[in-house]
Design a protein around this nucleic acid. Structure first.
Lengths: 355, 355
DNA sequence: TTGTATGCGTTATCAA
DNA sequence: TTGATAACGCATACAA
């Protein structure tokens, strides 16, 4: 029909008022007489004008009302992680009062198409999940002058950050296992870098872990078990835990009596593997997790784990964004886990199986 | 430092070229000599200019590179649903080649803060999950002239839609149960409207179901069981299924021999409830699901269910968006489920438990 | 290969 | 309460 969509000027002309008046009718920034208002609204209706073009408005205003959330990997993979889901939930909650929407940005391979962080019309960014690309992304965002908040990642100083006492918490879990008499222990970690395959962690690899969460939790484990083997999973999932667990329990003479996992999902998989191998948890093998999420199908086990407040983490990040957008400078926050002893850890078996 | 961020004109001036030349250096739309290019880039670096302002660019271009996805309810709740997660995964995959990002819009209570669909700078919208607000949202989006694709909802004609053969598929499942000799059957449905509480579905309610998926699947069930009781869950989750199942199995003399659930999660909950009540599945009670997702912790059961290609559904929607954005008119697609007989359905028990 | 001119659709400021 | 004016920062058609 129309060669062109109607603009606010068209509406103004039709209504016989000035563009600025028409604008004000829609924004409500200034009082307008009832007569003019309805004339403008009528004109808009007759022209099929449905309000200001957001692009133009955002150019003029300098703000878009959009908060970018940078995630790593594909969306599906991202939301498969219960912790991240909770964090997103809290984040969206805290950002909602701003009237801001969330723009999902995946950092997946910078080669792939759009350098989105550079070209997305966002007012602020939340960097979450702490990939190795973090520094680069931070540089990008800051060069654009966009306020940014980092969730669990190596932000430099002067970047508001929401963190977790990963190292301390994992040390506590490790100590728990050590105190129960376990000596033959293995830790199952999250990915060492984004996109990495699963495999044993050599000293070289250990020295070059780019994922902060993994590194910190491993460090906490090391505080009590400096030389125990460590195996990195490719992702946090029950399946990955199952695969790793099968590996751990395959050779009867090398079998660990305890597995310290860096996530509840991994721990759940390990428990499954133990059952598969005919081992009893916790009598034959103790398993600890991390996160404190409800894992579907884990009953009757109650995981011994460090419980983190994932939703709160997101909420705090969202509040930090809100603060930044209103000109305040939020301070970084470090959240603390709560250790929960369940029924998946127990005193080490008296006799080592063999060797 | 700077009173104002540098613009491309500043860069051009510093580099001693015209603004258009500088623009071209960043967009790459036109060949530029190596000498000029590097002069421009140097100038940009020295001014701390990090590329065109996305807001201005998008105003000029008329496109923002953002696709809006309208979901119902809170984010956290949304991504808790495995089917939706898969759909989002497929969608983001299909949209990635466009260089488009996804903007998450919740339709939650139009009163709450931002009238987002009206004011978001999106090039296209995907309406998913089919709430009762769908028509209204469609009107909003179309009045803005934004191309839109609907996933499983009552789009009018002439709106590209990706659907599922919900009614046929559910009828097949119901027939399966009927053919096994079950007469005392109850169906457990998805919510009848968005935000509804759980409860028995009266004829009045049944006549006014606003969620298409629920309505269609129930219709399919009705094709074989015109008068059997139907109970609506408040959401698709194992917990809701468990609660409903407890209700079904509470009174021994009214106990159904088969439960036809509208989702795998609900079915899983029902199975849990059956176990709790000391009933064997499928010997004492048959349970069918819908979706064909992998439900964690369901082993050793293999659900009898209708398997839908959730990821494909999202992908097709994404491709439809791509088509719309390049001026084509995609046709609607109706996907077909595949019936899978697992080990949760069996011949009805010979003797009805009681009166 | 580079420059000139123009408009994308708004809204903030200020004066009337 | 309303209107005139001037950006907002860029990308494109077209000419050189």
């Amino acid at each position: 029909m129309n060669a062109r969509r109607a603009t606010i000027s068209d509406v103004a002309r039709t209504a016989g008022v000035s563009p600025s008046t028409a604008s004000v009718v829609f924004s409500g920034k200034t009082p307008v007489s009832e007569a003019t208002r309805s004339r403008v609204l009528d004109a808009a209706a007759s022209l099929g004008y449905s309000g200001p073009d957001p692009r133009a408005a955002s150019l003029r205003r300098g703000r878009s009302g959009i908060v970018g959330v940078v995630l790593q990997g594909r969306l599906g993979a991202v939301f498969r992680d219960p912790v991240l889901r909770l964090t997103m939930d809290g984040l969206s909650d805290a950002v909602a009062p701003l009237g801001a929407d969330l723009l999902l940005l995946h950092d997946e391979g910078k080669g792939s198409g759009a350098p989105t962080l550079l070209t997305a019309p966002i007012d602020a960014a939340v960097l979450v999940g702490c990939s190795g690309l973090l520094r680069e992304q931070l540089a990008t965002v800051r060069s654009r002058g966009i306020p940014v908040v980092v969730i669990e990642g190596d932000a430099g100083t002067d970047v508001p950050r929401v963190g977790l006492d990963n190292r301390d918490a994992q040390r506590v879990a490790a100590a728990h296992v050590a105190d129960l008499g376990h000596r033959n222990v293995v830790t199952l970690t999250l990915p060492t870098h984004w996109g990495a395959r699963s495999g044993w962690i050599t000293p070289e690899i250990e020295a070059a872990i780019t994922v902060e969460v993994t590194r910190e939790r491993l460090a906490g484990f090391r505080d009590r078990f400096p030389t125990s083997p460590a195996y990195a999973a490719a992702e946090s999932s029950i399946d990955e835990g199952l695969r790793a667990g099968r590996l751990f329990f395959a050779a009867a003479d090398l079998r660990p009596t305890a597995v310290v996992a860096q996530s509840d999902l991994l721990a759940t998989g390990v428990i499954r593997a133990a059952e598969e191998a005919g081992l009893r948890v916790p009598e034959d093998v103790s398993v600890t997790g991390f996160d404190g999420i409800d894992v579907d199908g884990l009953a009757p086990y109650v995981l011994t784990t460090q419980v983190q407040a994932a939703t709160l983490k997101g909420r705090i990040a969202g509040e930090a964004v809100a603060a930044l957008l209103s000109g305040d400078i939020p301070h970084s926050r470090e959240l603390t886990c709560t250790f929960r002893v369940g029924n998946t850890s127990a005193i080490a078996p008296a006799a080592s199986p063999a060797a």
